[in-house]
């Protein structure tokens, strides 16, 4: 019986091993070697030197902090806005179908195109936001030229792009909730606000959990948005770990250290996901 189960699972397991475990092992091996332009791209064993460098690398930790801040703030905002939009789109009103499709447009746009668009929007002084500020008689703001503002710009762009995705997943969740629950609740004298807190949110929890998992994994690995919008600047204030790993591999041709940065990022991600899994999920619907 067990053998049969294993046999049936084998194709999937092999696939996972091939596309996931094997590259990971390769990376682990690489992180114990110096393979850079200085070694003529030949791997030279260096023990834990790369890991030591990682622990003492202020830039890695700064980028880790910035990546966490980016992911936390943007996913948080997306969740709140996405829930609002999902609730709105769940209501019955004329033209809902059109709005539902339209609201997906940002999600359908390629990341690089979207980032380029936002780069123009945030342009100082010729972008529309600054034109608006100027028109109102206010001072223009160097959005992408100030370390204090640039990371907010990256969050805004990301929220604009991925809120529709969050809204879509949550909308699917909302449609799974039987309508008679609300009817019964209303009959008992519950207010809509109470219905949201007592019925909608608890029953939506598994969907919120999925959204968090998807979005956090994606946002912690953010690359293209940052690369196009700010290039990681100014003063590396928007650089993410993925951008740093890319710089090490493709620009500096330091593959040993790039693999170490990637693995370090993976370990942080793993720790984050483990924390998320510890959260209560509220899967069971009591009938």
């Amino acid at each position: 019986m067990r053998l049969r189960a294993l046999l049936l699972m084998a194709p999937a397991l092999l696939l996972l091993l091939a596309v996931f475990a094997w590259p990971m092992l390769e990376y682990a091996w690489l992180s114990l070697h110096a393979q850079s332009v200085f070694t003529g791209l030949e791997p030279v064993p260096v023990g834990l030197a790369n890991w030591q460098r990682l622990l003492g690398d202020g830039r890695f930790w700064q980028d880790a902090g910035q990546t966490l801040r980016f992911a936390g703030v943007s996913v948080g905002l997306e969740l709140v806005l996405g829930l609002g939009i999902a609730l709105l789109l769940h209501q019955n009103w004329r033209g809902r179908g059109v709005v539902r499709s339209l609201s997906l447009l940002p999600w359908a746009l390629p990341n690089t195109v979207m980032a380029l668009g936002w780069r123009w929007i945030f342009d100082d002084p010729n972008g529309p936001i600054n034109a608006l500020l100027g028109g109102l008689g206010l001072a223009t703001l160097p959005f992408l030229a100030s370390p204090q503002l640039a990371w907010i710009a990256t969050v805004v762009a990301d929220v604009w792009k991925t809120t529709p995705f969050v809204a879509l997943l949550l909308l699917a969740g909302l449609q799974m909730i039987p309508a008679d629950l609300y009817d019964a609740f209303a009959l008992e004298g519950g207010t809509p606000w109470q219905a949201l807190r007592r019925i909608t949110l608890p029953l939506l929890r598994p969907y919120i959990f999925i959204v968090l998992l998807f979005r956090l994994a994606q946002a912690l690995g953010v690359f293209d948005l940052i690369a196009v919008l700010t290039g990681g600047g100014p003063a590396s204030s928007t650089e993410s770990l993925a951008v740093y790993a890319y710089l090490n591999a493709m620009r500096f041709l330091d593959f040993g250290y790039s693999a170490t940065v990637m693995l370090g990022m993976f370990l942080l991600l793993l720790a984050g996901s483990a924390l998320l899994l510890l959260l209560p999920r509220g899967q069971e619907v009591r009938s």
Binding site: V37, F38, R59, A145, P147, A235, S236, R251, F252, L253
Partner: peptide, 19 residues
Amino acid sequence: PGYAQLSDILQRELSAVIT
């Protein structure tokens, strides 16, 4: 051969100074 990284180090610090 390490120019890209040398330049990256300089750019990072200069950017911090300019801002």
